[in-house]
Computed example of a mutant assay.
Amino acid sequence: MGIRLPGVLRARQFLRRAILTSMATDVPKGHLAVYVGENQTTKKRYVVPVSFLNQATFQELLSRAEEENGFVHPMGGLTIPCNEELFINLTAYWH
């Protein structure tokens, strides 16, 4: 009998969707595509390692994305409603 954390389950659901939507694109194995930006016109696509899903801050961003979009993402991939500069600064520490 294992213990399942809600954040891990949520991250798995996002990962499954991201993998399905990014399979036909140029996303290397072990990575996923995300769209980052605060509005539709400024969103940019980033390819990030799957290991980012282990980061608490990234999980918070996923929770925020779920609150805003549910599991429907208008860009066709995982959309993170976050300032692009903030996202870049956060991910710089995870490498």
Rank of each mutant, 00 (worst) to 15 (best):
M1P: 05
G2W: 02
I3P: 00
I3L: 14
P6A: 05
P6T: 10
G7W: 01
G7R: 10
G7Q: 13
L9V: 12
L9Y: 00
R10C: 13
Q13L: 14
Q13S: 12
F14V: 10
L15S: 05
R16W: 12
R17M: 09
A18L: 10
A18S: 15
I19F: 02
T21L: 08
S22H: 01
M23T: 07
V27W: 08
P28W: 11
P28V: 13
K29W: 07
K29E: 15
K29D: 15
H31D: 03
H31C: 13
H31E: 05
L32V: 13
L32A: 04
V34K: 05
V36K: 03
V36I: 09
E38Q: 07
E38C: 05
E38N: 03
N39T: 07
N39E: 11
Q40A: 15
T41Y: 00
T42D: 03
K43F: 08
R45H: 01
Y46C: 14
V47Y: 03
V47E: 14
V48Y: 04
P49H: 09
P49K: 11
P49C: 13
V50Y: 00
F52R: 08
L53R: 02
F58K: 09
F58C: 01
F58M: 08
Q59L: 12
Q59N: 09
Q59K: 10
Q59T: 00
L61E: 11
L62D: 05
L62Y: 03
L62T: 02
R64N: 15
R64L: 14
A65R: 00
A65H: 00
E66K: 01
E66C: 07
E67L: 12
N69M: 05
F71V: 01
F71D: 09
F71C: 10
H73P: 00
H73W: 15
P74I: 02
G77S: 14
L78K: 04
C82V: 13
C82R: 05
N83Q: 14
E84R: 06
E85M: 02
E85F: 04
L86M: 00
I88R: 06
T91D: 09
T91F: 11
Y93T: 12
W94A: 06
H95F: 05
H95E: 14
H95A: 14
